[in-house]
Design a protein around this nucleic acid. Structure first.
Lengths: 65, 65
DNA sequence: GCTGGTCACAATGACCTC
DNA sequence: AGAGGTCATTGTGACCAG
């Protein structure tokens, strides 16, 4: 854990966000955007996982202050 | 397409069923079993994909007649 | 402490042989 | 026609170096 891209996240979500947030994505969600993302399910839905990253405050560009 | 394990399925689902149906699985579903499995989302939820395989009539043992 | 880079590992699915 | 086998490809995440 630690602050990554503006939010406190685990290392795997840091890597996921680094890989996915910076490029245009065409992820398909199996549940119309209603996935519950946990450590056990995070691999399942990239769309909901990325949304959760943004919702948690992760940002592409580090905010100044 | 063709008959695989008792149902008409694509080749990828044939391979998936072969890999997963014969061993005890601990799949976690991101949407509490309500995933809509399509060609685009089938990678996302193994639990719902395997259930759909069984629902489609795929069986571990070939039925006689 | 946080960044990007690396790479072993595992799942997928197209293709193959029997 | 349908079974199992193979393996290139890809995403993941632990770990590394700056």
């Amino acid at each position: 854990m630690g602050r990554h891209f503006g939010a406190i996240t685990c290392d795997s979500c840091k890597s996921f966000f680094r890989r996915t947030a910076f490029v245009k994505q065409l992820f398909e969600c199996p549940s119309d955007g209603r996935c519950n993302i946990t450590a056990d399910t995070r691999k399942s839905c990239q769309k909901c996982r990325l949304k959760k990253c943004f919702d948690a405050g992760m940002r592409k560009v580090l905010r100044v202050n």
